[in-house]
Design a protein around this nucleic acid. Structure first.
Lengths: 335, 335
DNA sequence: CGGGTGATTGCAACCGGTTGCAAGGGCCGC
DNA sequence: GCGGCCCTTGCAACCGGTTGCAATCACCCG
């Protein structure tokens, strides 16, 4: 059916090695042979079978891309950037949607069966052990949007979540909010735990501020909406730090549905600065996570590990910044 | 490095064929041999190399999934559902992000090199010829969210865009709007052209209604926002049919930013019924595209074609329905 | 013109599996 | 106890490539 190396070799009147070499960068082929082969190949419409090649070269250019959150629109940006970045380097993303099953073994086995060159885990909620399972299996892996630590067991690229929590706390404090809350992500997500810790630690310096945390079921609109409904029922606080922009938007909707205004009645500060935060109907004050940089670094890192697997794992922490928009009241004396 | 068939065979004291057969459904192996092999395999942590196997079986379980719009949050739902649906059937999605280059040859060659079993093109904007290139190359292909037609050259699963355009027109007419507009997608997208035609044809029955079409740069928030800005500048119409929910949301934001209320000053009806349309801050009246059904049917179809490639291509048209929310004024006499 | 050099080439083994075929083995009935 | 049948099993060829090695070739120099 498909045209093979042998077909080309026959047509060009050379050995299969010659053909193979024509398609292998840096192999020794004379100009004349190359011409004959290329002519035959293009007449036949030949292109080498990457999978067969991978058997001997031990390179598939396949990269497993694992994600577990398809409810958060930010992940479309994540996919867009990852797929583009990988493609630009000639790599192919093999997607694993982890929404259904989360045992590491399944994913490890599956990606092993496909001989992926490496794996990128793009999740801030998956446990560290999940990611480590790949390294244990000898598959190069990078944890993107993960939780950096000292002496990490796998490569991690992410942000200082505790620092970000503190940043949110400072921001709320500076605006004079006294009764504040943290609408956190799921309690099992390390990112949430760190943000909560940073938030609480910073607020400990501000004795007049009283804070409370409520965990959401997930990083999703529905979870944010439900959490804010519960808050409203219990009597809402003055302002909330939300563990993710999408939670903010859920909360924002719940507030508006309840006839409360933002930032008039309640202030909100989100996290991520996804594209929707900029939308006029949302206009969310938030803490920006440098997504593009994280993704670019993750891809660069996996490429580097694939090329030289014996590198010790590193943690890379990228800086976040406050993006002020319209969901918090202005700084006192600011107009 | 990795453990192979041969390692297992040696350890189990059997031939490689025996091992291969234990891992092949329906092959003839005695209970005793199978036990020995399974024991050895699990001790060694063996799992067969799918790529090597594919060389002889001619099946990779790889399905190319091509998309060209990562600006529209609806596509996260599309990815979620496609990846899950494929995984459920033991298939692996190989993503191609077409945002950068759109020559069919590149994608065809690339997917051919990876011996994908089939390809799903998930786009309502890519030209038909793009999809047909796969069939020409002998790769099973399904055009999902495409434009069904009589005697299609490739399998297509989609909706009746003209009918949907008409539905939008009827809806606006019934609510007594007189000066209406269509904020269309890109002029090159067949989906847009069909919707525009249906919209215009239906309005032709309503002589008192005056309509106009404005094409957007793409199915994105930014495009919708910009288009509505231009409309406002030119003096906005009473209501708009938007070629996509995301365009509606862009338009909605532009209207609110300009101090206009929806549906008080301007009415909006969208298209797709993506999840965000349900959000409180959006609450968009829209025409629902049966995404889940389209995706499920697309996957079922590609599986069927892969199993039996000689089927003539079919077009499948699924029904849409009006979802009434809060961005159009009520029907006259409706309260 | 012979020997030496480096570039080019083909052979054959190999990558990790599958599978047609024929031989071997167990079990049955007679 | 024997022949026959069917289930198991291993051999070896093959899937579509790559690559070490040795042979060949062209060319240069003395």
């Amino acid at each position: 059916m498909a045209v093979t190396l042998k077909d080309v070799a026959e047509r060009a009147g050379v050995s299969t090695s010659a053909v193979s070499r024509t398609f292998t960068e840096g192999a020794s082929v004379s100009h004349k042979t190359r011409e004959k082969v290329e002519k035959a190949a293009s007449e036949l419409g030949y292109s080498p079978n990457v999978l067969a090649r991978s058997l001997t070269t031990r390179r598939t250019s396949l990269i497993g891309l694992i994600a577990d959150n398809f409810q958060n629109p930010m992940f479309l940006e994540v996919f867009d950037q990852f797929t583009r970045s990988l493609q630009r380097r000639g790599l192919r993303p093999l997607i694993v949607n982890l929404s259904e099953a989360t045992e590491p073994e399944t994913s490890v086995t599956m990606l092993q069966q496909y001989s992926v060159d490496g794996v990128i885990v793009a999740s801030s909620t998956l446990p560290r052990t999940f990611v480590e399972a790949f390294r244990t299996a000898g598959i190069p892996v990078v944890h993107s949007v993960g939780r950096p630590s000292r002496a990490p067991k796998v490569d991690v690229i992410g942000i200082d979540n505790a620092r970000c929590g503190a940043m949110a706390a400072e921001t709320l404090a500076a605006r004079g909010y006294r009764r504040v809350g943290f609408l956190a992500g799921p309690q099992t997500a390390t990112s949430t735990v760190d943000r909560a810790r940073g938030f609480a630690n910073e607020l400990a310096h501000h004795h007049q501020i009283e804070a409370e945390t409520r965990f959401c079921d997930g990083y999703s609109y529905a979870a944010g909406y439900a959490a804010m409904r519960a808050e409203i029922k219990a009597g809402p606080r003055e302002a909330y730090f939300c563990g993710d922009d999408i939670i903010s938007i859920g909360a924002l909707s719940a507030l508006r549905d309840a006839g409360l205004s933002v930032p008039g009645d309640v202030g909100l500060i989100g996290f991520n600065d996804m594209e929707m935060a900029r939308w006029g109907v949302v206009d969310l004050t938030t803490i920006r996570q440098p997504l593009t940089e994280i993704i670019e670094a993750s891809v660069a890192r996996i490429v580097s590990i694939v090329a030289d697997p014996d590198q010790p794992p590193e943690a890379m922490t990228l800086p976040c910044e406050l993006i002020e928009r319209g969901t918090l009241r202005p700084l006192p004396g600011d107009g």
